[in-house]
Deep mutational scan, measured.
Amino acid sequence: NKFNKEMRNAYWEILHLPNLNEEQKNAFIQSLYDDPSQSANLLAEAKKLNDAQA
């Protein structure tokens, strides 16, 4: 299933973003579980936030 793979990839990438705190990571990961079809968008948002907090 495409979403499972996308979701897993997004999950791991978000988990390893160095500039997000636990609360931010948890919020993105919760959103992933709530709507796996948004994995790519959530990952993009997480990366933007990560870069902004660098």
Rank of each mutant, 00 (worst) to 15 (best):
N1V: 02
N1A: 01
F3Q: 15
F3S: 15
N4W: 15
K5Q: 10
K5S: 01
K5G: 04
K5T: 00
E6T: 12
E6Y: 01
M7W: 15
R8F: 14
N9P: 01
N9S: 03
N9T: 10
A10H: 02
A10M: 04
A10P: 00
A10V: 03
Y11L: 09
Y11R: 07
W12R: 11
W12D: 03
E13K: 14
E13M: 11
I14Q: 00
I14L: 07
L15I: 11
L15P: 00
H16F: 13
L17H: 04
L17K: 04
N19T: 10
N19D: 06
N19K: 10
E22S: 13
K25R: 11
K25D: 01
N26L: 03
N26R: 14
N26Y: 14
A27T: 08
A27R: 07
F28Y: 10
F28G: 02
F28A: 08
I29T: 04
Q30F: 09
Q30R: 13
Q30G: 07
S31W: 05
L32K: 00
L32E: 00
Y33N: 01
Y33K: 03
Y33W: 08
Y33H: 03
D34K: 10
D34S: 12
D34N: 12
D35S: 07
D35K: 14
P36L: 08
P36R: 02
P36T: 05
S37D: 07
S37P: 15
S37R: 09
S37I: 10
Q38R: 09
A40H: 12
A40V: 11
N41I: 11
N41A: 12
L42F: 13
L42I: 11
L42V: 11
L42Q: 04
L42Y: 06
L42P: 03
L43D: 04
A44G: 14
A44P: 05
A44F: 14
A44T: 08
A46W: 00
A46V: 07
A46T: 02
A46L: 02
A46S: 06
K47R: 13
K47T: 02
K47P: 00
L49V: 12
L49W: 09
L49M: 09
N50H: 09
D51W: 07
D51Y: 12
A52Y: 12
Q53K: 13
Q53W: 08
A54F: 04
A54Y: 11
A54I: 06
A54V: 11
